[in-house]
Design a protein around this nucleic acid. Structure first.
Length: 106
DNA sequence: ACCCTGACTTATT
DNA sequence: CAATAAGCCAGGG
């Protein structure tokens, strides 16, 4: 296992941890901030690898459409939604977020 | 080494 | 607005 690969994860963690409360960032956005412009998928995989007791605000990361990239039937989906709402992020009736308003660094 | 899959994105039809 | 295709990175069989 190379150090560089661990650095990628570390970068992603740092970027996700840098997302201000009340805002959301897309996977591509996070990847770009981490220096991995086209590794949006890697971000998703990295978050999936996170332990459930992580202190990382992974719930502030959504897909490019401002929608949670998880099945609505999954418990993690509700957790993410509740966490975001608790921070002031509003969801549309369709379950989408207005990135124009809550997107990170508009 | 090869092929498939995945918490993705963007452009096109 | 919805469905499709192609592109990209890393992991697992």
């Amino acid at each position: 296992m190379s150090v560089d690969e661990l650095n990628n994860q570390e970068k992603i963690w740092q970027v996700v941890a840098s997302i201000p409360a009340g805002c959301v960032a897309s996977y591509g956005q996070v990847a770009a901030m981490a220096g991995l412009a086209r590794a949006a998928r890697l971000v998703g995989r990295t978050l999936k690898n996170l332990p459930k007791d992580t202190n990382l605000p992974w719930y502030r990361v959504v897909n490019g459409q401002g929608e949670i990239s998880l099945p609505k039937a999954s418990p993690v989906y509700y957790i993410q939604k509740q966490q975001l709402e608790a921070e002031g992020v509003a969801f549309n009736p369709n379950g989408k977020i207005n990135l124009k308003k809550f997107g990170w660094q508009p």
